[in-house]
Amino acid sequence: MSARPHMAKLDDVTRFAEGLTNDYLMCRTWAHSWDPGTSAVQRTGGRIHWTVECSTCGTTRTRVMTPSGSIVGNRYAYPEGYQSGGIGRIGQRGLATIRMESLKRIGGA
């Protein structure tokens, strides 16, 4: 039986959201905008590694696939300051807090 992940406290998520840049906050609110113009493909160890970059925040995503296109997994590389710094897993209430910080910044809350 696996242990439940440590969940972030709402106060910690609020502080985290308030410290995010507008670009990072946008990606956390709406998800990444993968730029096809940044596509790079490598074939290594019998796998295809297809990498793209987010045009908003600079995160890179590498999709690892079999030669027939089945997905083996995804790997992400985040820019400095994007990740939550070990406060724990951000649950639904925390994600709502992040969305509200985003709305506040655009004058919608």
Score class of each variant (00 low, 15 high):
Met1Gln: 15
Ser2Asn: 11
Ala3Cys: 10
His6Arg: 14
His6Pro: 14
Met7Arg: 07
Met7Thr: 10
Ala8Gln: 01
Lys9Arg: 11
Leu10Glu: 04
Asp11Lys: 09
Asp11Asn: 11
Asp11Gln: 12
Asp12Met: 09
Val13Trp: 00
Val13Lys: 01
Thr14Tyr: 07
Thr14Glu: 10
Thr14Gln: 13
Thr14Trp: 06
Thr14Leu: 10
Phe16Thr: 01
Phe16Trp: 02
Thr21Arg: 05
Asn22Met: 14
Asp23Cys: 10
Tyr24Cys: 09
Tyr24Gln: 09
Tyr24Ala: 13
Leu25Gly: 00
Met26Lys: 14
Met26Asp: 12
Cys27Leu: 03
Arg28Tyr: 08
Arg28Glu: 06
Trp30His: 15
Trp30Thr: 10
Ala31Tyr: 12
His32Asn: 07
Ser33Asn: 10
Ser33Arg: 12
Pro36Trp: 05
Gly37Ser: 08
Gly37Asn: 09
Ala40Leu: 12
Ala40Arg: 09
Val41Ile: 13
Gln42Met: 13
Gln42Ser: 12
Thr44Trp: 14
Thr44Gln: 15
Gly45Thr: 12
Gly46Glu: 04
Arg47Phe: 07
Arg47Asn: 11
Arg47Tyr: 10
Arg47Lys: 08
Arg47Ile: 06
Ile48Thr: 04
Ile48Ser: 03
Ile48Val: 08
His49Ile: 06
His49Lys: 06
His49Leu: 05
Trp50Ser: 15
Thr51Cys: 04
Thr51Trp: 04
Val52Leu: 07
Ser55Arg: 06
Thr56Trp: 04
Thr60Asp: 04
Arg61Gln: 11
Arg61Val: 13
Arg63Tyr: 15
Arg63Lys: 15
Arg63Trp: 15
Met65Asn: 10
Thr66Lys: 05
Thr66Met: 04
Ser68Ala: 13
Gly69Cys: 02
Gly69Ser: 02
Ser70Asp: 13
Ile71Gln: 05
Val72Glu: 11
Gly73Tyr: 05
Asn74Gly: 11
Arg75Pro: 13
Arg75Trp: 10
Arg75Glu: 12
Arg75Leu: 14
Arg75Ile: 12
Tyr76Val: 07
Tyr78Asn: 03
Pro79Lys: 02
Pro79His: 04
Glu80Leu: 15
Tyr82Val: 06
Ser84Leu: 13
Gly85Val: 08
Gly86Thr: 05
Ile87Phe: 03
Ile87Ala: 04
Gly88Thr: 02
Ile90Asp: 00
Ile90Phe: 00
Ile90Leu: 01
Leu95Ser: 02
Thr97Leu: 03
Ile98His: 00
Lys104Asn: 09
Lys104Val: 07
Arg105Pro: 00
Arg105Trp: 01
Ile106Lys: 10
Gly108Ala: 14
Ala109Gly: 08
Ala109His: 07
